[in-house]
Simulated scan of single mutants.
Amino acid sequence: MRVEIWSDIACPWCYIGKARFEKGLESFAHRDDVEVVHRSFELDPGRAKGDVAPVVDMLAAKLGRSREEALAMEEQVASHARSEGLGYRVGDRDHGSTFDIHRLLHLAGKHGRQDELLSLAYRANFAEERSVYDTGTLVELAVEAGLDEAESRAVLADAQAYAEEVRADEREAAELGATGVPFFVLDRRYGVSGGQPAEVFTQALEQAWQGRAITPLGGDAGGAADGRGAACDTEGSCEIPQAGGHS
């Protein structure tokens, strides 16, 4: 069974959702028969490559909030990340175009190192003092993930390398009805939206394995039967679960 995950490195709920999905997968009896493929989705597709700004300032401007409100939003997301055992820096992260990262992830996919690179990029972006919007850092991450340095540099130097693959993923996400990420497609038949709890992913995997529908693709891709998980959309909003909802 194949699970495809549309996500963006700039999305905190994608970072959290990946960890939760992996926990859910670990509890799935047929986990060794699951192939995971990561797909591209840019939350800020029109952003110029060199336009890098502090994430709190970006959120405040895009959502029309004060800097203090934007910082409080970051603190709330950070608490969810830390509850999953993930590192999360608040207030001093950058935000920029993720197009180059997605292109490099397609190169990594070619060599079977996609998950390794994505995990390293998430950690660099959210937990470490390393900017994923710097070409040198991206090359370092690629090498850490097991990719060839010269090939990685060549891809980043050629703006057309894997560009169509990124765009194709994004067109497909739109066709499937995904308006935010993370977005999970199970066996090309069912969809789960948002950073759901681990147990919801386990249930989704079991239902997909048994052939029982969760959310038919092409309809309302809103999530599993338990409701929509927290997600980020292209308007800059990253939903925070309310009391009584999923965390």
Rank of each mutant, 00 (worst) to 15 (best):
L104M: 09
S40K: 10
V185M: 02
V155I: 13
G223S: 14
A19Q: 12
A230L: 12
P182T: 03
G112T: 01
V34K: 02
N125F: 13
I5W: 10
L147K: 09
A221Q: 02
T215E: 00
L147W: 01
A60H: 08
E149P: 14
V36D: 08
S97R: 10
P182I: 07
A10D: 13
R82A: 07
F21R: 10
Q114H: 06
A159G: 06
Q207F: 01
G50Y: 03
E75M: 12
A48I: 02
E144T: 07
T179V: 14
V3Y: 04
S7P: 01
A173V: 13
G245A: 14
C238Y: 00
A198V: 06
A121G: 02
T215N: 00
H38L: 15
G177M: 01
A10R: 08
L86Q: 05
L43Y: 00
L63C: 05
S152H: 03
V200T: 13
L205V: 09
L104D: 07
L25K: 12
G177P: 00
E22R: 14
S193M: 14
R113L: 12
A208Y: 01
R82F: 03
A127M: 02
C11K: 05
S27D: 11
V36L: 13
G50F: 04
V192A: 03
V185S: 01
R82E: 08
E199L: 10
F183C: 01
E164W: 02
L120E: 07
I214C: 02
G87H: 00
V155G: 10
R228M: 14
T202D: 03
E164I: 06
H95T: 12
G245Y: 05
E22P: 12
Q242W: 01
Y190C: 15
E165G: 02
G180H: 12
S83H: 09
S83N: 08
R228T: 15
R20P: 11
L117R: 11
V3F: 06
D169F: 03
G191A: 13
D220F: 01
E144N: 08
A225Q: 12
D94E: 15
G211H: 06
G222E: 14
V36Q: 11
E84Q: 15
E144G: 05
A173S: 09
W6Y: 11
T202M: 10
P54L: 00
L63G: 04
